[in-house]
Structures are given as C-alpha cells and as structure tokens.
C-alpha cells in the first residue's frame, strides 16, 4: 500500500515538474493563483474605508471594525465617515490626525450619492476604468467581480466533481440495474428547466452566492457524471481492477484507490474548461437578470451597461477585457496541464 502511494506521489511530482517547464501555462497559473489570492484581500486594497485612522492620538481600524460615524472623527456628516474627504481636509489643514487609505480608494458600491462621483466619467487617473451609469467605479467593480466569478466557478466545479465522481463512478463501476436506473433518473433530471427553478426560488428568497451555486449544481452535475461514468466503465474492464478484486479489495477501495487515480487525467484536463464554463454561466445569468442581486459587482452587469452605451467604449472593453484575460490564462493552464498529465511526448516523430 505505502509503496503504491509513493509511486503515485512521484508520478504527481513528475507531472508537476513537467508542468513547470511549460512556461506559458505555469506563469498563468502562478499569476492566477496570486490574483485570486489577492482578491480575497480586496477590501484592504480597493475600498473607500480607511485602513488606519489616527484621530487625536487614538488609533482605529475602520477596515476591520466596520462602521464608524463621521462624527467620531470630527467630520460633520450624518452617516459613516467619508474617509477620502477626511484625509484631504486633514492634509490641507495641517492637522496631526492622519489616516491611511487603501491603494485604490473607491468602493464598488459608492455611486452618485457620494459627492464628487459622476456617471459616465471616462477613464482617468482617479478612476482607472471610468465610472458606470450610476457613477460607480468600474475598476473597483471589475476586481470585486473577479473574486466572485472565480469563486463561483471553483465551488461549482468542485461540487460537480464530487457529485460526478460519486454518482458517475458508481454507475460506471457497478453497471447493470444500478446504472440503468440512474441513467433514467439523470435523463429525467436533465429536463429540469433551470430558469423556472430560479424564478420559483427567487420569488421566495433573495438569491445569494451559495443559492445560485446550489441551483446551478442541480442542473450542472450531469455533465461530469457522464464523463466519469464512461471513464469508470472503461477502466473497470482493465486487468488491474480484476487483480485488485481477486486480492479481496472492497468495491469502495477499488473505485477510489485504484480506478480514480487512473481516471485522474480526464478529471484534471476537464477542470479548466469547467472553470470557464462556470465563469461564463455567471456572466450569462447576470446579464439575463437571474444572477446575483444588485448592487453586487458582476461582469455580466457591467457588460450589459456597456452594451447600452456603446459610445462609451470603456464600459464595453473593461468587462470583455477582464473576461478575455481570465479565460486566456485558464486556457493556457489547461493546455499545460493536459500536456503535463499526458505521459506521451508530443514531438513530431519520424
């Protein structure tokens, strides 16, 4: 047992080393991981709440502690402190108070309501990608939407994989009546009209990130199931399975210890495509108005606004560009992964 694990480990290691040599994919991977990692710290980087405020000798951290009334910092506003203005007035007044703003001090939600924000501001040094139809900063929204899109795709794919491997694997491995029965269930299930499911659910509760994932998984797991079923079906007839069984291994062990590692290649090669599918799905849902509730930043919503204002090119190019860069990176990774996982060498043989 231990020996076998070592072997598969070293195979993985080999594949990883191979992957590293494929520069395009490798760097895309590194970049994407870093960006996605960073995107979890977006509130620290892109926000209109100050990181640190030093007011009359006392330090506070609005970014962590949340809501601070403006009056706490001597600002005459009825609601939350407006940190950008605070900073400016302290600077101008030569006050001892100071504060540190995030690198890009605009939140994805603040619109024309906040003094100074204008709608359809073209890209400039303050608003890198301009503002949208209600005066919200497009760059800021783009970045937050990146996090949501990738998270959506990742969670969705993971869930699909778990379901797909469990159900599809069992179908392929067990075969017979079990397979036949589940095939029918799946066929019936796949006729579920997703839009209706969304309409029904969203008339009762407000769609959230996980609700959308749940709804999407309901219909989406089927694709993966088919793939896994075919894979397990094929592997099952191979000699090593018979050997393992004859050695008295349980079905469960055979499935997950023996077949699964062999079915890993399609699983992993399929992964980036599934991510892309997830991202595109969310864009489509948002565009149709069945996605995340407003004002959640989303690429689909940005694209929609952009298309209504074709003359304001930045609003079209921003989401399309973001979509393109992300998809391209995922694609490069996909290429590299496939190559790394394939034992064969694709050189021209002669």
């Amino acid at each position: 047992m231990a020996e076998q694990q070592q072997i598969s480990l070293s195979i993985l290691k080999k594949r990883w080393l191979k992957f590293k040599t494929l520069k395009r994919g490798y760097y895309s991977f590194i970049l994407l991981v870093i960006l996605y990692g960073l995107s979890w710290f977006l509130p620290l980087l892109i926000n209109n709440r100050a990181l640190v405020v030093s007011y009359e000798g006392e330090l506070s951290f609005p970014i962590v502690s949340g809501y601070h009334a403006g009056t706490e910092f001597g600002q005459d506003v009825p609601g939350e402190a407006i940190y950008r203005e605070l900073k400016q007035s302290w600077k101008q007044g030569g006050s001892d108070n100071w504060l540190i703003m995030p690198l890009y001090p605009y939140s994805p939600y603040e619109d024309i309501t906040v003094q100074g924000n204008k709608m359809y501001d073209p890209p400039s040094r303050t608003h890198w990608l301009g503002t949208d139809n209600t005066g919200r900063d497009v760059f800021s929204r783009l970045c937050y939407a990146f996090n949501i899109s990738i998270s959506f795709a990742l969670v969705l794919t993971t869930l699909n994989y778990i379901l797909g491997v469990l159900i599809g694997g069992s179908m392929g491995y067990l075969g017979g009546k079990f397979d036949l029965f589940f095939q029918r269930i799946i066929e019936i299930w796949s006729s579920l009209p997703m839009l209706f499911v969304i309409i029904i659910i969203s008339s009762i509760i407000r769609p959230s990130f996980f609700l959308l994932i749940f709804i999407y998984t309901i219909v989406n797991w089927i694709g993966m199931t088919y793939l896994m079923r075919a894979e397990f079906y094929r592997e099952k007839s191979k000699d090593y399975v018979a050997a393992a069984l004859s050695m008295g291994q349980t079905n469960f062990k055979v499935m997950f210890k023996h077949i699964l590692p062999n079915a890993l290649v399609p699983i992993i090669t399929y992964f980036p495509f599934s991510i892309i599918g997830g991202i595109s799905a969310l864009v489509g849902l948002d565009y149709l108005g069945f996605g995340m509730p407003p004002p959640t930043p989303s690429w689909g919503q940005l694209l929609e606004v952009g298309l209504q204002n074709i003359s304001k090119a930045w609003m079209v190019f921003a989401p399309v560009g973001a979509l393109f860069v992300t998809l391209l990176m995922v694609m490069f990774i996909a290429e590299a992964v496939r190559e790394a996982f394939d034992p064969k060498v694709y050189s021209r043989l002669r």
Partner: peptide, 25 residues
C-alpha cells in the same frame, strides 16, 4: 499556434450576443 490561440480566445471571451449588438450598430 500561439497567435491563433490568442485569437480564438479573444473570440471566445466576447459573448456572441454582445458582439452581435455592436456589429449591428
């Protein structure tokens, strides 16, 4: 290979309906 990949992925990342709308205008 590289250039054609980039091209088809640019195409892939533009939703068809969005492109259609722009082309019509």
């Amino acid at each position: 290979d590289f250039l054609s990949s980039v091209t088809i992925f640019i195409a892939y990342s533009i939703p068809g309906w969005a492109l259609g709308g722009v082309l019509l205008v």
